[in-house]
Amino acid sequence: MMTAYQSSSEIERMSLLDDDALMVEIGNGSQFAGHVFIERHLSYVLHVCRKKLGREAEAEEAAQDVFASVWKNAGHWQAGQAKVTTWLYRVASNRCIDILRRRKPDIALDDAGDPADDTVDIERAQQTTDQNRLIRQALGRLSQDQQRAIELVYYREMAQREAAEMMNISLPALESVLRRARQKLHNELAGYRVQLQMV
């Protein structure tokens, strides 16, 4: 049996691998690699499925099928033939087309989107998930209070007084927490912009 420490160091080791190497590890049966793969690509796959299907339950069903396909086919993965994300996009697209056809059996392939000519969509989906990762990293660097305040007021659109009550702080204190959080996020955003200009 592995200890929790060994498991976390193994997951850390796997998270340093690129997608190709991760696929090889999954093909060898590594659950640690599978864990890292889910963490790395779930947002992307789900985003693609949501965009194509528009219904959360169906998008989740499609995402599960995509990952089942990964576990099944990782052993045959040939590094360098295609990008893992491109392959994931195609698997997700095909699965979504199946679901759309099930929804409307007479749907034409053109109406469902042609998976053979979707380079722009793949790039756009990749950019969106990369951006998502950066935002999550930036939010993750805020203090617990700041994260909670942003989550409640910004993402859940909660009224200020209600959010302050939930956090057990006064309204001026909430405003102060939010202001500091947004200031930090401004700095993070400026840092990313500099990085983007350098690329």
Partner: peptide, 13 residues
């Protein structure tokens, strides 16, 4: 669900 499915499909090294 994804984690559980993955664990049932992959055997740990």
């Amino acid at each position: 669900r994804l984690m559980a499915n993955m664990q049932s499909q992959l055997s740990p090294l």
